[in-house]
Nucleic acid binder design. Structure first.
Lengths: 350, 350
DNA sequence: TCCAATATTGACAACCTTGTCAAAAATCGC
DNA sequence: GCGATTTTTGACAAGGTTGTCAATATTGGA
């Protein structure tokens, strides 16, 4: 009755024998293929259930030439941004019977075409993923897209991308979000608004900046180039931007940092200098990552549904796999949310 | 000369043909098996190189009954702790030709044996990993260990564990580290030292606490029960502990928070209350996670080499796989480091 | 120099699934 | 009711690798 060894899991053959059919029929039932009598279907299902049959992953992928793997390609695994997206991706994969693996690729965007190809071939060939998720800064890289296309691996990109109509894309409307941020600050009465850029190789930096500029103009304000500071999406660069503002003759009354870490760095610099946020400066971040509520005062920011982006990316990718083969171009935009907390206030009119 | 299609990657057969040997010989060379002439070895290697041969993962695992997968089982993917370990794990896997996958298991420690078994069977059977990395709070769970052992899946645990001599274990010496922290505070002249516990289901909480108690006694100090606060390894619980201390009649002059997030929360509570760290209170954290240098003042803490722990766990696990089959019990202790920064100072003697 | 022992090599099966194609059964039209 | 069509089913091969075992080449000893 019971199994003799917990080691030996049932094969298709065993299910077939128990159900009194051929293994091919079992295969058909388990893959929901047509052309099987309802009666046999039930029988097979019962047998499979009884034997706790689980298909062999390796046999399947060997024969079917699919790996049931989705590969997440990113530069800096370990960052909150990447991890949140990954989190959603893992969940979605788990649901769909896929597995999410992670490839760390170093400075791919600096490399020549042939080296990129080599890098991918090494990592991808071993266990060729059925699809790849490209995160910033690689999502926007043409060469990488080309190599992957050449290798015939379907791709979904996450985050803003220049290359429009280039397959699947999942993102939020960074442009619109930036506009909302500026509008909020302008509504509070701020005129002198600074901006901290993110990494220059990430498209989000440019999109948010152009939203910033457009909204400034719409509000009848001018963008002071001196108040636009470089950054790298990390605490340190926000801190440095803060120090710059503190030493600058005409300080901004508000700053839009293009992510939360930089906003936190900026606040740290001001606080350390004995100034108060939002009394002495209003600050808005971007992402609503954990630091936004682990700092004081709580950070006003834009919530980006990172894990949803990851989950959606996986789902769209997997859905596209069973499609006709032609990867249709699709752009999915998830909702962001302006989160008003405590780092913004009307300008200090002395 | 060049390949006709980038699609068709070379198989063992192709390498064998080019080298003028049988595929079995190719297999032997590529797996570093003995009994092949040096001359043929070279020939085969050259042929493989030329054809850019990469072994088929699925064929290998089908035949060899191995998946080349290491599964990381954790509760809360997304936490810095988990992500750092994972990061090291991914790197090590990449080097070794393995792949790291992640399983999110919810509240496994609350479940009955049979449900745990069911949970693992669902996730593990599909693509049975060659080994599993167990992180807190699951590393210390007997039931989980038993289920995995029953399934015949080798395990490596990361972090402090009660179950000694139960297979592979990679950790730092939490006990000793806690002692060093207390010694530092005692040396500064602190007498009234508080402690913030972490999650009660994590062994680290208890080990660090007992190190704390022992070192207190060794320094001739008494542990004031009222100053030992509960926590959950997150910012919020540290913040709450801070609020408690602030409202308490005899405030501690120093606090050892059992991780950085809680230390940061504590500092936030004090700062918000208009007090200064370390003037009004000395604080030490644990982990040296990113928040330690993203807060002001910089946090004195204990560096735990998380990504090294992850990498080492993978390496030991993989090494043990090719062993005799008997998983030997081994305990690997990596070095921690006391990191002196700016949140500790002699007590404020008014 | 020849036989025994050893080292090297290769043919073939096996791993478990799915695709192909043909056989068998059921259905339909007249 | 019978042949033609459609539906259902199964036998067999294939996918790329590694283990088994037999065949062959090499070495050593007498």
């Amino acid at each position: 009755m019971t199994q003799t060894k917990s080691e030996n899991s049932a094969k298709m053959k065993d299910v077939a024998d128990l159900a009194g059919v051929s293994i091919k029929t079992v295969s058909r039932v388990l893959n929901n293929e047509p052309h099987v009598q309802e009666k046999l279907r039930r029988k097979v299902r019962e047998a499979a259930e009884k034997l706790e049959y689980v298909p062999s992953h390796s046999a399947r992928s060997l024969r079917g030439n699919r790996s049931y793997d989705i590969n997440l390609v990113c530069h800096n695994a370990g960052s909150v941004y990447v991890n949140s997206i990954q989190f959603g991706g893992v969940i979605a994969c788990q649901e769909l019977g896929y597995q999410l693996s992670i490839s760390l690729m170093e400075d791919l965007d600096q490399m020549a075409m042939r080296d990129i190809r080599a890098a991918f071939e090494t990592v991808m060939k071993r266990r060729r993923p059925d699809g790849v998720i490209l995160l910033a800064p690689y999502a926007n890289d043409e060469k990488i897209g080309f190599v992957l296309q050449e290798m015939g691996i379907p791709v979904v990109r996450v985050g803003p991308v220049e290359l429009q109509n280039k397959g699947l894309l999942v993102e939020i409307d960074d442009y619109q979000a930036a506009i909302e941020v500026v509008r909020h600050l302008a509504d509070l009465g701020h005129k002198n608004i600074g901006f901290i850029r993110g990494s220059e190789n990430q498209r989000a930096t440019h999109v948010r900046y152009s939203g910033f500029c457009v909204a400034m103009e719409a509000a009848g304000l001018t963008v002071e180039d001196a108040l636009v500071r470089p950054g790298a999406f990390d605490f340190q660069s926000g801190y440095e931007a803060g120090q710059f503002y503190l030493g600058h003759t005409s300080r901004p009354s508000a700053v839009f940092a293009s992510n939360d870490d930089m906003a936190a760095g900026l606040v740290a610099a001001y606080t350390e200098h004995g100034l108060k946020v939002p009394k002495d400066i209003s600050v808005v971040g971007f992402d609503d990552s954990s630091i936004a509520t682990c700092m004081r005062p709580y950070l006003t920011t834009v919530r980006q549904p990172l894990s949803d982006l990851g989950a959606r990316a996986v789902r769209e990718l997997v859905a596209s796999l069973s499609g006709t083969g032609k990867p249709e171009a699709r752009r999915i935009v998830l909702d962001h949310e302006f989160v008003l907390r405590d780092t913004t206030a009307p300008p200090n009119t002395k």
